[in-house]
Amino acid sequence: MTKLFNVYRVLALVVGVLLLVGTVGSLLKYLLEDGTTLQRLGDDLTPIWLVHGWIYIVYVVVAFLLTQKARWTIPQLLLMLVAGLVPGLIFWVERRVAHQLRADHPELAQDQDAR
C-alpha cells in the first residue's frame, strides 16, 4: 500500500495545482475585458479543465482504493473526492489523509526515505 499512498499524494498535488490554474484561467477569461492579454491567457488555459478532469478520474479511483485498504468510512472518501473539486482544499485534505494513514497504519505509509 506504500506505492498506493505515494500515488495518491502525487495525484492530489497534480489535481490541486491543475484546479488552481484552471480556476485562475477561468477568472481571467470571464472577468476581464475581451481581447486583453490576460483575458487571452485565460482563454488559452481552458484546456487545463480537460486535463484536470481526466487526472481527477484517476484520483477518484486511487482515493477509493486507498480508503478501502485503510478501512476508512464513506465520509472520509467523500471528503477526499470533494477536495479535488474545491480550489485549495485538496492540499489540506492530502496532509490530513497522510497524517491519519500514518497514525492508523504506520507500516503502510512508510516514507521512501525510511526504508
Rank of each mutant, 00 (worst) to 15 (best):
L13T: 15
I55M: 07
L65M: 14
K3C: 01
V86G: 12
V14S: 02
G22F: 06
L79C: 04
D44Q: 11
W54H: 07
G25W: 03
L28V: 09
T73W: 02
D113R: 13
P47Q: 08
V10A: 14
Q76R: 07
L66P: 00
E94V: 03
A12V: 06
V15F: 06
A12Y: 02
Q112A: 13
V24T: 09
L79S: 11
L77G: 05
G22L: 02
Q39N: 14
L41T: 10
H105D: 05
W49H: 11
V93R: 05
H105V: 01
L81W: 14
L78M: 13
I90L: 03
A98Y: 05
F5C: 02
L18A: 11
L13Q: 12
T67F: 08
I55R: 04
L66V: 03
P47C: 12
T36R: 05
W92Y: 15
R9W: 09
I48M: 14
I48S: 04
L28W: 13
V24G: 03
R9N: 14
I55H: 06
L81G: 12
F91T: 08
Q112E: 13
Y56T: 03
A70G: 03
D34L: 10
K3I: 07
D43R: 06
Y59S: 05
R40M: 14
L81S: 08
